[in-house]
Design a binder for these strands. Structure first.
Length: 382
DNA sequence: CCAACCGGGGTCTGCCATAGTA
DNA sequence: TACTATGGCAGACCCCGGTTGG
């Protein structure tokens, strides 16, 4: 009853002020306060606790913007109880940068805290992102994909420091562009966290007796744009796992990490271990020696990445076509092609009576255009 | 001329836990 | 004490073509 009375008084106050047209932020905030509605939430025992109320003006505004209130509330309920928010400014800002209504609604639905950022803050952050991106639409694309990356941090100074730190590592603007596109979270990390990862990689390089830690780090980051959003713990576990599972020497590990291995570093360790175990078991059951298995993974680290199920299907598919497992070991890259692609190619070749035992499997390891050109020649030769 | 080698390009968030803060 | 800022986790390939050496 008391709550209802309070609400009525507030509505009266609102009616008396809402048409005054004062373009003043303070007044806008007051309006929101005046709209506050109290509600109670039930607990298991009979006592009823009064929670801080949700801001109904905010709810209305978000509804008008087309925001999925249910989704947003589930994600960040606290935002709905804030008295002062900037949803209109944020929407306006995004609109000015080229986002359409649907995009804006989706962004706020997925990262409601976005509406607590001020117009000034957003302008500044945008300016910093634009120092890396050429156009506004590139940024919109990233935000659309991952609203959290852009809005999670309120610290523009930290962002600026991250940019100069990454530049100081010798990364080019092209590298930064790639990192911000594919792993935007990197730039919202605390500078200190990014520094720690770089330090870890430098130390690793030194421990491997390599002379040039700076090049080493640069190379790993350019090979794997995601590295800075992984935990040091994860990278360390994976490096240790590489070394142990493949019994690598320092120089072998250095080579691996700066090649395909860098891409594989950010896999979750359990996943990688599982894949390694399953795939090596399958290869050994097909008659490969442990040395051959080791060589297979060193030559083709993406095997850690590919799910065992997929690799297994592909291997079966090759064996069915009288392709020897040792031929695969010589050309592991044919596993990079999708199951469908591989199947189609084998089918077409078999139709032409292609003898894999005689000619090997290299024909499978080519781009679509090259493969089709070869196929055409084979057809002509018939 | 062509097979073999090799590097590069695309793409990757949405959720949870928690220390810190107002 | 509620809320924010931030760290961390699981998830899990495919394809193209330039260059080079025989």
């Amino acid at each position: 009853m008391a709550a209802r009375a309070v609400t009525q008084v507030m509505h009266m106050y609102l009616r008396s002020t809402r048409f005054s047209h004062l373009p003043n932020c303070f007044l806008a905030a007051q309006l929101k306060i005046s709209y506050l509605r109290f509600y109670t939430s039930r607990h298991n025992d009979s006592t009823e606790t009064i929670q801080k109320p949700e801001n109904t003006v905010l709810l209305n505004n978000l509804t008008v913007l087309g925001v999925d209130i249910k989704m947003a509330r589930r994600r960040q309920p606290g935002v709905f109880r804030k008295v002062i928010t900037n949803e209109e400014a944020v929407a306006e800002f995004l609109k000015n940068k080229g986002a359409n209504r649907q995009t804006i609604a989706s962004i706020i639905s997925r990262y409601p805290r976005a509406i607590t950022r001020s117009y000034c803050h957003l302008e500044e952050r945008w300016r910093l992102w634009r120092s890396i991106f050429k156009t506004d639409s590139e940024i919109i694309n990233v935000i659309q994909r991952s609203p959290e990356s852009y809005f999670r941090s309120s610290d523009n100074e930290n962002l600026e420091k991250n940019i100069s730190f990454l530049c100081s590592l010798g990364l080019t603007s092209k590298d930064l562009h790639r990192i911000l596109t594919t792993a935007p979270r990197t730039f919202s990390n605390r500078l200190e966290l990014n520094k720690q990862m770089v330090k870890y990689l430098q130390d690793l390089c030194v421990s491997l007796c390599d002379q040039n830690p700076d090049d080493f780090v640069k190379r790993i980051i350019t090979k794997n744009a995601y590295i800075l959003i992984r935990s040091i713990k994860r990278i360390k576990t994976n490096v240790d796992f590489f070394t142990e599972a493949l019994k690598l020497s320092n120089s072998e590990l250095t080579k691996l990490l700066q090649g395909h291995g860098a891409e594989v570093l950010d896999l979750s360790s359990d996943y990688m271990k599982r894949n390694f175990k399953n795939t090596s078991e399958q290869l050994q059951s097909l008659g490969c020696t442990p040395e051959e298995v080791k060589k297979f993974f060193i030559d083709y680290p993406p095997a850690f990445y590919a799910s065992f199920e997929k690799i297994s299907i592909k291997i079966d598919c090759l064996l069915e076509s009288e392709i020897n497992i040792k031929q695969l070991l010589k050309k592991p890259r044919i596993l990079e092609f999708s199951v469908d692609n591989l199947k189609n190619r084998i089918e077409e070749l078999e139709r032409l009576g292609y003898d894999f035992r005689k000619h090997g499997v290299t024909i499978l390891d080519s781009s679509r255009r090259r493969f089709e050109a070869k196929l055409e020649k084979l057809t002509e030769g018939e």
